[in-house]
Structure formats: C-alpha cells, structure tokens
Simulated assay, not measured.
Amino acid sequence: MKKVLVVLLAMLFVVSAFSFKAIMVTDTGGLGDKSFNDGTWAGIKRAADELGIKAKVIQSYEQADYISNLSKAAEEIQKEPDGGIVYAVGFMMTDALFQVAQQFPDVYFAGIDIAPPTDAVPPNVITFLFKEQESAFLVGYIAAATTRVGKVGFIGGIPIPPVERFRYGFETGVKVYNDLHGTNVTILKGYANSFSDPKKGKDLALAQFAGGVDIIFHASGAVGNGVIEAAKEKMVSLVGSEDLSKILEYAFDKGGFFAMGVDVDQDYMAPGVVLASAMKGVDTASYMGVMWAYNGEWVPGVHVLGLAENGVRISPMKYTKGLVSNRTLAELEYLVTMIKKGTLVIPDTEEALKSFRTPKIEFPF
C-alpha cells in the first residue's frame, strides 16, 4: 500500500510539475475588439484551462511591435521546462512570424489568418486560414433577402486578403439571391483603412445609412464596434426605445437599420439590431494549435478551415431569426449543403468574383 502511495505521489508530482505555456501576440486591434483577437484568445484560454497550463497575452500597439513582441514571447517560452507555443494573430504579422520562427526553431509558432510567404514552412510553424467567403455568402444572402430598400452596405477594415474574402462572399450572396429571386439589391462599399478606430467605423456607417442603405456588413475588427453603434443609434431613434421586444416589433413591421457582425457572434452587442454574424473559427483554430503542440500531434504547414470543417459558420441569430423568412432559412440550409459538397463554390479572389455565374439551383421545396 505504501509503495502504491509513493508511486501515485510521484505521478502527481510529474503532472503538476509539467510546465507548458501559450502566449498570444495580438495585432494592433488588441484584446477588447469583441472580434478577431478576443475570439483567438478565447480558444487559447479554453485549451489552457482544460490542460491546466499557463497562458498570457502580449499587446501590439503598432506594427513595429510585431517582431519584438514575438521575440519576447519566444524567449519566455524557451525558459519553460516543457516549452510552449506562440500565437501570431493576423495577416499583418506574416513577415514577422516567419522571421522570428526561424530564429527560435525549438519553439512552436502558430499564425491565424497567415499564409506562408513561400512553399517551405518551417517544422515549428503551423498557420490557419479560413474560407471567410463561405460564411460571408450566408450573411450576404440574408441581407439581400431582408433589406426593405434594395440597398445594403459593406465596410472593411484594411483590404487585406481575409477582409477581401469576406467581401467576395458577401457580394456573391447578394448576387445569388438576386439571380434566384429576380431582385436587384445593390451594394455600397467602403474601407476604414484601420482595424482599431471605432469612430471611423461609425462615421462610415452613418454615411452609408444616409446613402440609402439599411443593412451593413462589416469586416473590420474593432472598427466594426462603431458600425454596430451607428446601427443601434439609428434603430433606437426610429423605435424610440432600446427595448428588444419593441425593436423586433418595429423591425418586423417596418424594417429599420441593421448591422451584421464578423469573426465571432456579435449579435449580443446590439440585440435585435445585429441581424446576423459571419463567424470564423478563430477560437477553434487557436484551441487546436495549443492542443496539438501539447499532445505531440503537431503537423506543420497550412490548415484551411471552411463550412465543411466547421471552421466558418453563421451565428444562430438568437434575437433576430424571426425577422428572416422561413423560406430564406430553408434556402440557406440547402445552399450550405451545396457548398459543403463543392457544387456551389464561393469565389475567393477578385478574378473569381468577376467571373462567377450563379449555377442552376432548384430548391427541393
């Protein structure tokens, strides 16, 4: 019995002594963006809590911080007896990630929304890319089906590839709805050239609303907080109340002003006003990376996640599902099936968008 107790205590010591750390380096949007950075951190924290390991965040305030912050994180990981993983968040960190990763070959690195600059990916690096166009297609289809004025808006942050893929998908969703239903919904587009300026997002949104738009989809990080704020202000001004039931009653009867969220489920930020969110599984990817590094299941290279991999999705529309017709929801389910099967391919480049033609689609209902 005594021998068994000694063995158990030894095992407990080994488990408790295991020292592994996950460090996330933010882009300039930082924590609190209620979007990309927050979503990535949520996945890392979930993995850390499950594994009982340490996790921390290093904030980047400008692009010049990327190399020094990633290097600082890697040096900190090297001090851990059992190592760890460093997360670089965002396309803008691409060059910094691959430069620093080569300098610290004994440290695991993961990049979110980062494509390797060459085909050769170091063995200590994984990156995650997403088919943003697929979830954006769904909100584009909903926007076209729901608009009362036939004009919707798109506001991007900086026109980098992930943001542009959101735009391609949104435009395709509107086009497919137009083609299938004989409508002519148009799109007003704008860019903030920032991911961290909510005021700029609000100004752009108010300008688009003044230009006749009633629904705006944003793909702009913390800038989008301003887009949502603008939609809420406009809607509350119409309704005369922030009460959810009154907003929904007004919206069901007369329409109004709406925003559409991005990256994570942002519907809660303005219940009844955020119509839907085009979600990407940054939390899933960040969780997976930590678990793979910890469990020795590391597979370097690029991992691309779309609807078929549950890497992108649309929010459950907890507050607003009743504003979307049952017919539209049924059509969406069918279109999702087509996308997963590959019979409906959503454009992921400007060239593919320009050449896209809606295939023959016959709904079985």
Rank of each mutant, 00 (worst) to 15 (best):
G190Y: 14
V139N: 02
V185M: 07
I77F: 01
F130H: 08
L344M: 06
K151W: 01
V89E: 10
V7F: 14
G190E: 15
K131V: 04
Y287E: 04
P123R: 04
T40V: 10
Q102N: 14
L8C: 15
F20N: 03
L97A: 05
S135K: 06
A136Q: 01
V312L: 08
A308M: 12
S68H: 06
P359V: 03
A259W: 03
V7K: 15
N310L: 12
T349S: 15
K354V: 07
T284D: 12
L323A: 05
A47R: 02
V152R: 02
F137Q: 03
K199A: 15
F130D: 02
T320R: 04
G301V: 02
D348L: 09
N184I: 11
L275G: 05
K21V: 11
V100I: 04
G211V: 05
R327F: 11
D119G: 14
W298N: 06
P198M: 02
I361N: 06
F209Y: 08
A55S: 13
Q133S: 06
V121K: 00
P123S: 09
F36Y: 12
V139H: 02
F356I: 03
I142F: 06
A285H: 01
K234T: 11
E242A: 13
A17V: 07
E362D: 12
P271R: 12
L329F: 08
E164N: 15
M291E: 08
S237H: 13
D38Q: 01
K354P: 11
Y287T: 11
A330W: 13
G39F: 05
Q63E: 14
A48V: 03
F356W: 00
Q63M: 10
L8K: 04
V25P: 00
G256S: 05
R165A: 05
Q208L: 15
F154T: 00
K45F: 01
T146E: 04
G157A: 11
T146N: 08
V100F: 00
T337L: 12
V125P: 00
I216D: 05
I23G: 01
I314K: 07
E297D: 07
A101T: 06
A144H: 02
D49E: 13
